[in-house]
């Protein structure tokens, strides 16, 4: 088991956001976390990497409980996080953005170099010295993923990677995610778009109002159109 989350509860100030979230991700698996806007997908990811301070529960990553560790320690342990808002450093060039993400080589995870990432995302290779603020949305999305991969993670939380991208870029994104999977990176990807999720995922969870209401393989999900229609807008 790569990642195991149990009884995760999170709060923003006085508001209770997540209720007893439980998730599991196997070695080399791609798991989709599906749900509508505001269902709690981003909060789940932010809670796992420790960016939501007020949380309780168990988060076991590579058989180590990381729920008490600070964000940077969790990420250094090999759990990469790609935020939904992209949050690239707009004043820094592409290469400098990648430098911020760089971490030492890890024995149990694929090793990424700048050159290797520039072959995975050829666009980035052509704009190495361009400031992040002067890139298109799609290029920025590529850069955030590449930046996280520079940390050589064994598992990546990808928050809505297809959001706001043109169909052509979404295709490239699917290719990139599958390439990451082939390298051996486990992935949790949050999505509103079931079609996109189906192209890349082995299994899926559905989250609604801060609670997990379904977990199973993609085939099992397809066999339950009632659940799909009730919790996902197509």
């Amino acid at each position: 088991m790569k990642l195991q989350v149990a009884d995760l509860n999170s709060f923003y100030g006085p508001a209770h956001i997540l209720f007893d979230i439980a998730l599991e991700v196997g070695e080399g698996e791609v798991v989709a976390l599906l749900g509508r806007n505001g269902a709690g997908k981003s909060t789940t990811f932010r809670s796992i990497v420790g960016l939501v301070e007020n949380r309780s529960g168990r988060i076991v990553f590579e058989s180590r409980d990381v729920s008490r560790e600070p964000t940077h320690a969790i990420v250094r342990g090999g759990l990469g996080y790609v935020p939904e808002e992209r949050r690239i450093f707009t004043d820094l060039t592409v290469e400098e953005n990648l430098e911020v993400g760089r971490q030492p080589k890890r024995p149990n995870a694929p090793h990424w170099t700048r050159e290797k990432l520039f072959t995975l995302f050829p666009n980035l290779g052509e704009m190495r010295n361009r400031p992040g603020g002067r890139m298109s949305g799609g290029e920025q999305q590529m850069l955030t993923i590449a930046r996280t991969l520079m940390g050589n993670p064994s598992l990546v939380l990808l928050d809505e990677p297809s959001e706001g991208l043109s169909p052509k870029i979404v295709e490239q994104m699917v290719d990139a995610i599958l390439a990451m999977k082939n390298e051996g990176v486990s992935i949790v990807v949050s999505e509103q778009n079931l079609h996109f999720a189906r192209l890349i995922s082995d299994r899926a969870y559905i989250i609604e109002r801060g609670r997990i209401c379904f977990g199973g393989t993609m085939a099992e999900l397809d066999a339950r159109p009632d659940i799909r229609d009730a919790h996902l807008s197509l």
């Binding site: 940077h72 953005n97 996280t148």
Partner: peptide, 19 residues
């Protein structure tokens, strides 16, 4: 580079493994 990145977005720098 880390300092300039942190000037812009501290939490993101932490989320990339920097103490």
């Amino acid at each position: 580079v880390l300092v300039r990145a942190a000037t812009q977005d501290r939490d993101m720098v932490a989320a990339l493994g920097v103490n």
